[in-house]
Nucleic acid binder design. Structure first.
Lengths: 231, 231
DNA sequence: GTACAAATTAACTCGTTGGATAAATACTCC
DNA sequence: GGAGTATTTATCCAACGAGTTAATTTGTAC
């Protein structure tokens, strides 16, 4: 019997292959965690061979770290495009909240990855050299907004930017990341459209109330625009 | 050679054994997640034999669910002992926040377990019959406080109790649960004493500002008392 | 068209791990 | 002190899954 000449499923495309692998790995790690993820499933999902993962990226842990780094890079990059400098302080904060909320909704894998990594006490992330440096510019961006708000008298207090960001992220993150257990124990679907809209308004109200000392009724309409889909 | 008569390490004590198993399993699942947990390690930690886990509880998944149910039962039970009905609305909320914060600090495994379960989309929790029923009384307790606050004029808005609780829990949970990655990316130790005290004050300020519309300066001293260690 | 490297495939290794079996040991009640 | 049951122990094993080896194919440069 003649040996069949089997064409490769994908013509040679190392770059594309690497991307497909990382995308598949992201899904897998998000769905099952580091320990629960299966190399074979990632390979299958990427329309690749198991050997390819090792060839293009490395072992399971390397793969996981690569996914994690890419995830951080992606969100921080989108945030840099927010252009908050040109908005009034309150509007800037509302926009940051709106972005954060919708980013988390659009990227549920990001939440799951962070959870997995935190259960592991950031053991893997600590091996990263890139991730840390992404964050000082981000903190400075928030600090600038707060300082401006204080200077114009719009904000009551010079809130610590890290504290503020953790609150914003926390109010969004916890609701979405824990929506499965919360929906179950409270017996209501936290992910249905109405519930999500209500939550975003609630978060914006909460944060601005604390910053400005004024009621949530002063929200600009813009602040409640959903899914800003920034470039 | 005579067969040594090896005394059992623990004299017959099925109840104690069960408790030791669940305690060891809690640690293990919290540290490694469901997939990463190792039955053998749990057995060793519980000073038991692997067979004992199956005998007293069941397979790995049963064990995991038992741990999860016990964890929910524990926090809800402590909350019931808070006796918030006798406090002024603001003080009651501050006390609830204080309790929640310190409970999370005292029980880091609880946070890790919830994270693991949420990565799994509550797949396992949904098999539980007990957990759901624990929560309506809890929600009603919060609703009562809010209603009282609105009636006395202390609170501006009749905030949805579930929304409010998710915010309180989120502000505490995210900070603590994600402290490993956050500490790393922001380059500061979020778990050192000062940082934790600052965070608790920040959370109380944020929530009360939104509820009362007043500044955080009105905090009662009690509200910042740490580690209430309720009965 | 041939030499050489890059990319891809198939098949195998081998330790780990959840779970199962059977036998041994202690407690209880008569 | 013996029967019967509850608890505990010592082994075993089949499946799985990460990682490897070696062969094969495809592109490229000359």
């Amino acid at each position: 019997m003649k040996k069949a000449k089997r064409a490769a499923k994908w013509p040679r495309d190392p770059e594309g292959m690497r991307i497909r692998i990382l995308e598949a790995a992201k899904k897998e790690f998000a769905a099952y965690g580091l320990a629960g993820a299966r190399i074979d499933r990632i390979a299958a999902e990427a329309d690749a061979n198991k050997r390819m993962l090792y060839y293009h990226v490395g072992n399971k842990e390397d793969l996981y770290l690569a996914v994690l780094e890419a995830a951080y890079e992606k969100i921080r990059a989108e945030e840099r495009g927010l252009d908050l400098e040109h908005l009034d302080p309150s509007a800037a904060i509302a926009r940051l909240i709106d972005f954060t909320w919708n980013y988390f909704i659009r990227n549920p894998e990001f939440l799951a990855l962070l959870n997995t990594e935190n259960v592991a006490k950031a053991r893997n992330l600590k091996r990263s050299t890139k991730v840390k440096s992404m964050h000082s510019p981000f903190v400075e961006m928030i600090r600038t907004i707060v300082d401006r708000g204080v200077k114009t008298g719009e904000f009551r207090v010079a809130m610590d930017p890290v504290q503020l960001y953790i609150s914003i992220a926390g109010l969004c993150f916890f609701y979405l990341s824990n929506s499965a257990t919360l929906s179950f124990i409270f017996g209501r679907d936290l992910l249905k459209k109405d519930a999500k809209e209500e939550r975003l308004e609630h978060v914006i109200m909460l944060v601005l109330a604390a910053l400005t000392g004024r009621s949530g009724a002063t929200l600009t309409p813009m602040a409640t625009a959903h899914d800003s889909h920034l470039a």
